[in-house]
Design a protein around this nucleic acid. Structure first.
Lengths: 205, 205
DNA sequence: TATTAGATGTGTCATCTTTCACAAACCACA
DNA sequence: TGTGGTTTGTGAAAGATGACACATCTAATA
């Protein structure tokens, strides 16, 4: 039975991973908690402690081999594999999400795109034909999709989420500006750029 | 000298505000910490404690008047006013950001769009002519812009950030998948959808 | 081989954050 | 006017998180 890792630790690992990938690209092969911390604005002790939850990845006196640490973090996060993702909503926002190349480049493949507007059904976004939202349950369930992104108006987001969860989705990235109520075995992450801006204005002037 | 409010409290206020706006739209005029908490998946005690940092907004036995609480939160967050925002990067991502209507609807007006590609200069995105990045300093400084969004490739993000900060920007919403090093009087928020997805895969299966 | 200059992993402590629980206030209604 | 059912605001307790500091190990070099 592995000990429970705090959520907040897990939430930092992808940031570490991204920094390590960057270091790789820059040609580095070894790094240290100090170097990483400096890049990320995090204390070196915190990085060491976070990593130590999963075993000793580094070597005293030397630091961390970047390639090895990357691999380990990928496995911890389960992103050493590819994931199929469903996208609901093919409006302005949904279309932009569907076209964003960064997902596939980093292992998240948009496999299905759904929309409720009859005139959009069958049209294509990139290489994907838009499917009717009525197909969500069947498609998601039959294909074992576990991850979905919601890019529909706030009014419809909860209903869409309910359907996705019913069909087996366990992780939702929600672009709609509304909080979702989900069972505790389902994870939700939110992206609302305005909220991010509003978190900063407090500190201005 | 107002007491220092923890960052984590400030970061939740926009979420409260968004929920209140939703309640308004639904025709509600009064709410309680319990109702809000249930919607947001937060304990009622936490909501009360967060709000209490700024004075007593509610009434015992009754709850909170939504209109009043919204106003108060807007003032605390300094979003009772409109803000002018600069956007750097007019590629796929930057264009999508520029076209997103949610910003202006909620008080953040994209006032300038910059890009470094000579062939894009002068072209328009929506109603904005794309300006050359060489103009960043002058334009930002002369117009007193304090908020910027970065939607350029990771390689250029730090450089762009440095220029923005030099010109007077104090809050940056960074869409580039890289951490920025900034002075401590500058705030940064990050949006990297892949990072959000990677924060959830750990918990799958 | 001995020494020095790092760097990790971790027990301990300090701080930050959340929850608890209750007095005080409020409304509605008899 | 008095009573009962709510709800806030808040000290105090509990819990979670982060920083510290050091023993231990490594590599490099003399």
């Amino acid at each position: 039975m592995p000990p429970t890792i705090p959520d907040i630790v897990i939430s930092r690992l992808p940031v570490y991973l991204r920094a390590l990938e960057r270091l790789s690209q820059e040609g580095e092969e070894v790094t240290s908690s100090h170097e990483l911390g400096k890049r990320l604005g995090i204390s070196s002790a915190q990085i060491r402690k976070d990593l130590s939850h999963f075993g000793g990845f580094g070597k005293q006196g030397t630091g961390y081999k970047i390639a090895f640490l990357k691999d380990q973090l990928r496995q911890v996060l389960k992103v050493e594999r590819d994931w199929q993702v469903a996208l609901v909503g093919a409006g302005d926002l949904g279309s932009a999400v569907a076209r964003y190349r960064g997902f596939a480049e980093r292992g998240f493949h948009i496999a299905y795109v759904f929309d409720s507007a009859p005139e959009k059904i069958g049209k294509k976004i990139g290489s994907f034909a838009i499917l009717p939202t009525d197909d969500i349950r069947k498609t998601i369930h039959e294909n074992g999709i576990k991850i979905a992104m919601i890019a529909v108006p706030a009014e419809n987001a909860q209903h869409v989420a309910d359907e996705l969860i019913e069909a087996g989705v366990r992780a939702i990235l929600n672009y709609a500006p509304i909080n979702l109520n989900v069972p505790e075995n389902v994870r939700v992450q939110y992206i609302d750029p305005v909220i991010h801006l509003q978190r900063m204005t407090y500190y201005l002037i």
